[in-house]
Amino acid sequence: MIQDLEPVVRAHPFFDGLPDELVKFLTGCARNVRFDAGQMIFRQGDPADEFFLLRAGRVSLETHDPARGPLVVHTLEPGEVLGWSWLFPPYRCYWSARAVERARALAMDARCLRRKFEERPELGYAMMLRVGRVLSDRLHSARLQMLDVFHDGDK
């Protein structure tokens, strides 16, 4: 099914505040994707060639331990984004991503995005600001989880 993706891209909160003209410029990199509950979106070590903008459903970031099974470190909700390994060499996925429930997302081609960022540095900057915000939030979140603050018994 061929669909004009521009309104879908514009509707994603990640692009809030991005000028229409730049949204239009980016849309060419996007495609619509769906995942079934339990489906792997990518696995650790896979080429990181896509940037996902979650539109519906919950996605987990996880790794796998042979004895303990999948270990979930973070989950993503609609409106959030998935993956930034596509920005930096060697472009390999650090974690695995799995659809916890049926999920829909925009997948944007990484080469296409990087090329457009080079071409239009103001777009690159606007996107880096957004990715930076996400990175910062995830880092704070990971640090707090690491502190294990709810485990407060006498040691």
Binding site: G69, V72, S141, Q145, F150
Partner: peptide
């Protein structure tokens, strides 16, 4: 929750303030 395996919990994993944001 802060930590889980993917088998026992289908809900969000992460810190509470994130829930406040949404």
């Amino acid at each position: 929750v802060d930590r889980t395996t993917g088998v026992e919990w289908m809900g969000p994993v992460g810190i509470v303030p994130r829930l406040l944001a949404r």
